[in-house]
Design a protein around this nucleic acid. Sequence first.
DNA 1: GTCTATATTTAGATAGAC
DNA 2: GTCTATCTAAATATAGAC
Lengths: 221, 221
Amino acid sequence: MTKPVQAAPVKMGRIRLKRRAAILAAAEQEFACNGFKGTSTSAIAERAGLAKAQVHYYFGSKEDLYQEVLATIMNQWNLTLEDITADDEPAEVLSRYVRAKMHFSRERPELSKIFASEVLRGAPILQTYLGKQQYEWVQSRAAVIRAWVEQGKMRRIDPVQLIIYLWALTQHYADFNTQVLAVMGKDCLTDEEYGELTDQLIDMVLVGCGIATRDTSTHVR
Amino acid sequence: MTKPVQAAPVKMGRIRLKRRAAILAAAEQEFACNGFKGTSTSAIAERAGLAKAQVHYYFGSKEDLYQEVLATIMNQWNLTLEDITADDEPAEVLSRYVRAKMHFSRERPELSKIFASEVLRGAPILQTYLGKQQYEWVQSRAAVIRAWVEQGKMRRIDPVQLIIYLWALTQHYADFNTQVLAVMGKDCLTDEEYGELTDQLIDMVLVGCGIATRDTSTHVR
DNA sequence: GTCTATATTTAGATAGAC
DNA sequence: GTCTATCTAAATATAGAC
């Protein structure tokens, strides 16, 4: 018999909870910068203010720790765009989704970066998830988008590609934040500036989908 | 006196050229998968069919080798969109650029991935390049885009963000190719299928910019 | 239950043989 | 000029002390 995928909900002591939280937080930073292979358990331990061996005591192997971090990410990931129907308005659903993803990119860029580096290396850990759960997730949303198109609520766009566009655009602001800041000539962005970027992106997406909300898309020749 | 940034154009022998080429090719694959820190010189050597020490003999340190790979990427990168003026047609320039970047994403995804992983970790090697050369590159293109907007050739969009959108969208097909294939339910894409994706993306970009080329953007309400 | 001390492997790099 | 043999440091992981 193999170990259950989901860890048993054992009630943990105070020290254990505290140490695990510190290690997980440190691991997110390290994995985000250097990926799975490039991250050492000693770097995680140092950042967490602990001894290297403590990381192994609380999480077993480096891969076990990595898997827990990845599981956290994938859970938080698809909280939005959860329940949409053909009756919803694409303008509202799409702007809400872009806003939520952009918010996530600003608040937890490390999580987006860890996912990115996992996919960069060919997603050895996540490939089953991508090919099954995420595939299904995309198909069900794509069906709704297709219905919107049939109803004339938006332009005819390949729904799967549209979802990929949304991921590419929103996650880019987390994964490539260093480059974004550099080419914008800034050291950091205020909440206001980031909100402005978000609005501009939503505008671009809606116009691209043929959903004009205000005085946009007036330059069509 | 320090070493010159550009290596002196020493004429190399046959063996040296051959070994260096094999190492560089292997290094691209390894760096693309595991990033700078996650890649070992022994993994590169093994993939190149050489001994680990030979890598150090021909390239000195791992970082020297990495810098050469990065330099190759940045040179190939900005070959397109080189000379554009306010007199050009945005529809033509933008579709040409997207097509070129998509072609690059298909032919050399490893190079895009290496750039991505460098930026993911905060671009310690490239930050000067990003803040100076690439910043200037973006500014000069942004000026042209601004001129297009003033001439009414396209919708009013923040030009810097538009460039970022183009990068995000096109590079995503290289960096996240594993995920793209997974959610599309395919093992690989034929040239035809990839050409179709490229056309769809160009369509999305042009419509988003308020440049209707054919029967697109007709669903504007 | 927690952490220190230690074992084993692999990393990057170089001195010296060919 | 090229490559083999070797050195030192850092990696993952665990056995055993507290």
